[in-house]
Amino acid sequence: MPDESRPPFQVGAHVPNCLLPNGSYLHDLRGQPVILAFAPDEWNPAQAHQSSIFAHLLHAFDGIAVSDDTMAAWYSLDCQGPVAAQFNITDQRTLLLLDEQGILRWQTAIGPGQEPRAGQILAALEALRPIAPVAAREVPITSGGLSRRTFLAATLATAALLLLAGAAEAAATVTPPKHPASMPATPAVATIPITLTINGETHRLEVEPRVALLDALRENLHLTGTKKGCDHGQCGACTVHLDGQSALSCLTLAVMSEGRQITTIEGLAKGATLHPMQAAFVKHDAFQCGYCTPGQIMAATALVQDKQHRSAAEIREAMSGNLCRCAAYPNIIAAIQETQTA
């Protein structure tokens, strides 16, 4: 029986916001129930034999068909001391259930050597049922509210695993639940060590597979010349060269870029000497706010490599993937035209 003598936080209270290690805030998860699990460092989900609590948690969902499209996902977040402190948690394994408004609905602390009981967790999840309408979205509703299946799937979809003492670096896949086919859970994903060749230099970093090249450049490597505009392939601000061709770093994963020659705006100038395209942009005043400019210049330098002489119309067509909110287009075309004739 779990030891519930030391409640880490009061049921019914709004829990504090906290910064999760992936850079988002706990409050951003509002709108769906959330499971927070704190663990001291010796409880490392990377090691299967230490992850029985999660095996139990997932077993609690046995027999409940979670369909393909409502995939269960939980994040393995390495949440350092401050968050645990915010939750008054010091050394015990603790599970918290938050409702969709961020109110603590249930909690349990688990003493050393103890295991939570699946039935108990299920009961707690059931108790959340009436207060979780948002989790249902448009999925079929059984009489009297949400179907359990819907609710559980939604719950798992935002379950966050917060590790108290920071031992969870590079958490590998947790022991899968008994029926992997009925629960194609998004795995607890390991970070992958990769080597990127950027502007001729080799960089080693560890990223989750979902990290876009754009974010790896900006956040991990602090090469902030490459800009994030739309993050969806619609503006060209994030243009870099991959193996000499222009490409969008927002729609490229960092892990996909391994082994390729990556060139960013930082790689164009030779010391204090600007690349001819950069110089032409300066000369023709080919920008106003400058936000789109690195992407424009990367697209333009890739374009003129073939040394073809393009008409203004052809340049416009070839450069249509780079939007400029300031509408510096005529000057951009002029700058590119100059480098073609140079």
């Binding site: 393909d68 995939m71 996902a73 086919a181 194609p184 859970a185 998004t186 795995p187 597979p209 979902r210 876009a212 993050d231 969806h232 392939g233 969008l248 729609l251 490229t252 994963l253 996909m256």
Partner: peptide, 27 residues
């Protein structure tokens, strides 16, 4: 793996994954 998917250029697949329209477990 029912929730695995191929990715090639990624221009459709990753765009939709960012929107959480697609949620593959393996790419």
């Amino acid at each position: 793996a029912p929730s695995a998917a191929f990715v090639a250029g990624g221009t459709s697949q990753l765009d939709l994954m960012k929107e959480e329209v697609l949620r593959p477990s393996l790419l």
